[in-house]
Amino acid sequence: MIGTMIGIGALQIVLCLVAGPFFEGISRKYVRARIAHGRVGPLTGAMQPFWDLAKLLGKEDLSIGGPLQRIAPVLCMGAVLTASLLIPLGGAPPFGFAGDFIVLLYFLTMISVMIVLGAAASGTSYTMGGALREVMGLLIVDLVMAVSFITVMINTRSLRIGDWIEWEAAYGPNISMILALIPILLVMPAQFGKVPFDTPEAEQELMGGPLAEMSGPKLALYKWAIYGKQFVIAALFVQVFFPWPLTPIWPLNLVAALVKILVVFILMGVVEALMPRLRIDQSLKYYATLFVIGAMAIVMAYLTA
């Protein structure tokens, strides 16, 4: 039993590290380049993010800044890997426990916090500006997500992600669940760090913002961690709101989950291709609207529960 759990845990970590960049590669090559831009795209196909990471890992580290800047990317990656153990892929999470969602939320926040810390430790105006925007986003984006999940908690009367999945699979979505789904889906590009909500990085405004002073292996770690975060968020979303098909056969569930996650990645690629970057004030207003929808979902959940 313990052996199986460790096996599944190891598999989840590896999937998070591999499937994140791979799905991003698919979205980049086939959605962004081929369909939206009308160009051939990377010749390595969906494998391009791996080549990017390999190249960065082999590069000289030219970053400025002290020990904090050196340790932040590592902690960021650590947070992602820990979070990957808590997500449901082939059914309930392998290391699930009562209240595991709170821990997962904590580690997800930790990823952004580590990006901000690394930026603050670099201390140039681009990184500070980016860090400021990241914090503004962090405060409200994670809140929007949390509010949506509160509806789920009310419906399922549990803080355990495994219970949520079983509940949704058994009873199907009610009105409050559908309402809760909207803000979390619409805030997803911000969680992915993509246009129209990539204001913190905003290459054209802040030269990469928090990551402006990161280079070589540190940048690779951050980028990899961000791919991992995208995978984790997408997995949490599809499994909680779309757990079907939930079969007793674990590998089948896993494959279904991966397909669903890929759909989210592709969806994010489509949004990225169709929108310009919004200003921070515009995105904050947008998040606030989503927050209101999330709050309405909570009220609805109370009324129907």
Binding site: R32, A36, H37, G38, R39, V195, P196, D198, A202, E203, Q204, E272, A273, L274, M275, P276, R277
Partner: peptide, 16 residues
Amino acid sequence: AGHIIGFETILMQSWR
């Protein structure tokens, strides 16, 4: 202009 505001599709299409 599209590229500056992060709208890469405009960049690629108008240059095509």
